[in-house]
Lab assay of single mutants.
Amino acid sequence: EVPFKVVAQFPYKSDYEDDLNFEKDQEIIVTSVEDAEWYFGEYQDSNGDVIEGIFPKSFVAVQG
């Protein structure tokens, strides 16, 4: 069931425009499960802007 919160276990950096880049310990709200390997989610950056994109499930852990 979406949405749910995950926390980055590792930093994720990608050159693909659709990917969500983040640092370790970033909290991310997952709004869609793309497939067995990928989530789609969002978070607010330090400027208060909402950043969204896809990212690999293996880089995050589900909270709770």
Score class of each variant (00 low, 15 high):
D18F: 14
F55H: 01
E27L: 12
P3M: 05
D25H: 10
D15P: 12
V30E: 00
V33R: 06
S46I: 12
A61M: 13
D49T: 12
Y12Q: 00
F10T: 06
L20I: 05
V30S: 00
E34I: 15
S14F: 02
G48Q: 02
D18A: 14
A36E: 13
A36M: 08
L20T: 00
W38A: 03
E37N: 13
Y39V: 03
Q63E: 11
V7S: 04
D19T: 14
W38N: 09
Y16L: 11
G53I: 04
P56D: 04
E34Y: 15
E27N: 05
D19V: 12
V6A: 05
E42L: 10
E34C: 15
Y16Q: 13
F4L: 03
V33H: 06
D25Y: 11
E17F: 09
L20Q: 02
V33C: 08
A61D: 10
Q26A: 04
V6Q: 02
F55L: 01
V50A: 05
D15M: 12
S32F: 09
S46P: 10
E52L: 08
D49S: 11
V62I: 13
F4P: 00
A36D: 14
E1Q: 13
V2S: 05
Y16I: 12
D45V: 08
S46N: 09
I51K: 15
Q9D: 03
V50P: 05
Y16V: 13
Q63V: 15
E42M: 15
F4K: 01
V30W: 02
T31C: 08
D45Y: 04
V2G: 05
S46L: 11
Q44V: 14
Q63S: 12
P3Y: 07
K24T: 07
I29W: 15
D45L: 13
V7G: 02
Y43R: 03
D35H: 08
G48N: 05
Y39R: 01
E1C: 15
E17L: 11
K5G: 04
K24C: 08
L20K: 01
V2Q: 05
P3E: 02
I54M: 14
Y43P: 00
F59E: 03
V2L: 11
Q26L: 02
D15T: 12
V6M: 02
A8R: 01
W38S: 07
V33K: 06
P11N: 08
E17Y: 09
E27A: 07
V60Y: 03
Q26W: 04
Q9P: 02
P56G: 03
Q44F: 10
A61L: 12
A61F: 11
E1S: 12
V33Y: 08
S32C: 15
V62H: 11
F59R: 07
E52I: 10
E23C: 10
D25E: 07
E17G: 10
Q63G: 10
D19C: 15
E17P: 15
N21G: 05
E1L: 13
Y43G: 01
Y39T: 00
S32L: 08
E52P: 02
F4E: 00
V30H: 03
I29Y: 07
G64E: 11
K5R: 12
S58V: 09
E23Q: 07
A61Y: 12
V30M: 03
V2F: 09
I51F: 13
I29E: 05
P3K: 06
Q26G: 02
E17I: 13
K57R: 13
A36G: 13
P11W: 06
P3I: 05
D45R: 08
V30L: 03
G48V: 01
F40C: 09
V50G: 03
D49F: 13
L20H: 01
W38Q: 05
F4M: 03
Y43V: 03
L20R: 01
I51P: 00
V33G: 03
E17A: 13
E42V: 10
S14C: 07
F10M: 12
D35G: 13
Y43N: 01
G64S: 11
E34F: 15
G64Y: 11
Q63Y: 14
N21H: 11
W38V: 05
N47C: 09
V30T: 01
Y16W: 10
P3T: 04
K57I: 09
P11D: 09
Q26I: 05
F40V: 06
A36H: 11
E23A: 08
I54Y: 15
K5C: 12
Q26E: 04
Y43A: 02
E34W: 15
I28M: 04
D49Q: 13
S32G: 12
S46C: 12
Q26N: 00
S46E: 12
V62M: 12
F59L: 14
W38G: 00
I51S: 07
Q44D: 03
S58H: 10
G48C: 07
Q63P: 13
F22M: 03
E23I: 06
V62F: 13
D19E: 14
F4I: 03
V2W: 05
S46T: 11
A36Q: 10
Y43T: 04
V50H: 09
I54P: 05
Y39E: 00
S58W: 10
K57N: 06
D45I: 08
S32H: 13
E52M: 14
N21L: 05
I54Q: 12
K57C: 09
Q44T: 14
F40W: 11
D19G: 15
W38P: 00
S46G: 10
V6L: 02
N21R: 07
G48W: 03
F55V: 00
D19M: 14
T31G: 01
Q63K: 12
E37H: 12
E52S: 15
K5I: 11
K57P: 06
A61C: 14
Y16N: 15
D25I: 03
V50E: 02
K57M: 10
I28L: 05
I51N: 10
K57D: 03
Q9R: 14
S58A: 11
G53Y: 04
S14Q: 03
E27R: 05
W38E: 01
F10R: 14
L20M: 08
I28A: 01
P3N: 05
V30A: 02
Y39N: 00
F22S: 01
Y12E: 00
K13E: 06
G41Y: 03
A61K: 14
F22G: 01
V2P: 11
V33P: 04
P11M: 09
A36S: 13
D15V: 10
A8M: 03
Y16A: 14
V50L: 12
D19A: 15
V33T: 07
D45C: 10
P3G: 05
D49N: 14
S58R: 13
P56R: 05
A36C: 13
F22K: 00
E34Q: 14
V50N: 07
F59T: 08
A61G: 07
K13G: 04
Y39W: 14
W38T: 10
F10L: 11
G64K: 10
Q9F: 08
N47L: 07
N21T: 10
G41T: 03
V62E: 09
A8T: 03
G41D: 01
A61E: 12
L20D: 02
E1P: 11
P11C: 12
F40M: 08
G41K: 01
E23P: 07
I51M: 11
E23L: 07
N21I: 06
S58C: 15
Y39L: 05
F55P: 04
V7F: 08
E37C: 15
E42Q: 14
A8Q: 01
E17S: 11
I51V: 13
Q26F: 04
I54L: 15
Q44G: 04
F10H: 13
V30C: 04
E27V: 15
E27P: 05
V2A: 07
T31K: 09
N47E: 07
V7E: 02
L20S: 01
E27Y: 06
F4S: 00
D49I: 13
V7W: 09
F22E: 00
E17W: 09
F59H: 14
T31Q: 06
E52Q: 15
P11E: 09
D45F: 05
E37Q: 09
P11S: 13
S46K: 13
I54H: 15
K13H: 14
F55G: 02
K24Y: 05
E17Q: 12
Q44A: 11
P3C: 10
A61P: 02
K5A: 06
V2E: 02
I54D: 02
Y12R: 06
S14R: 05
V33I: 14
I54A: 11
K13M: 10
V62N: 09
Y12I: 00
E37K: 08
V7N: 04
F55A: 01
K24D: 02
D15K: 11
L20F: 09
Y43S: 01
I51A: 08
E1D: 11
D25S: 06
A8C: 06
Y12T: 00
I51Y: 13
F22P: 01
N47M: 08
I54G: 09
N47I: 06
V7I: 13
I28T: 02
F55E: 00
Q26R: 03
G48H: 04
F40G: 04
I51T: 06
Y12S: 00
V62P: 11
I28C: 05
Y16H: 15
K13W: 11
E52T: 15
E52A: 15
K13F: 12
Y12L: 02
Y16S: 15
V2K: 06
K13T: 09
Y39C: 05
S14L: 03
V2M: 08
F10S: 07
I28Y: 04
E27I: 15
E42P: 01
